[in-house]
Simulated assay, not measured.
Amino acid sequence: MIFGMPWWVFMVILFIFFSGYMAFRAMRAERALEKQYIEREGQVYMKRIEEEREQRRQEQKEVTN
Rank of each mutant, 00 (worst) to 15 (best):
A23M: 10
R53E: 08
E34S: 10
F24L: 14
M46W: 05
I16E: 08
Q43A: 13
E34P: 03
E39S: 06
E52N: 10
M46A: 12
L33M: 13
L14I: 09
I16Y: 03
E54L: 03
M5W: 08
R53H: 09
F10D: 10
V9S: 05
R28S: 02
F3N: 12
A32G: 00
F3D: 12
V9I: 08
E39R: 06
R25A: 08
Q36P: 09
Y37W: 15
E52R: 11
Q55K: 14
M27Y: 08
F24D: 07
W7E: 14
Q58G: 05
Y37K: 13
E51P: 00
Y37C: 14
L14P: 03
A23Y: 02
V9R: 10
M5I: 11
G42V: 02
A32E: 00
A23I: 12
A26S: 08
A32M: 00
A29Y: 12
A26F: 12
V63R: 15
M11A: 10
M46I: 08
N65Y: 15
G4M: 03
M1V: 06
V63M: 15
K47I: 03
I49W: 01
E30P: 01
Y37Q: 14
V12R: 03
E50T: 10
R48V: 04
A29S: 15
I38V: 10
A26P: 01
F3W: 12
V44D: 02
Q58C: 06
A23T: 09
F10T: 12
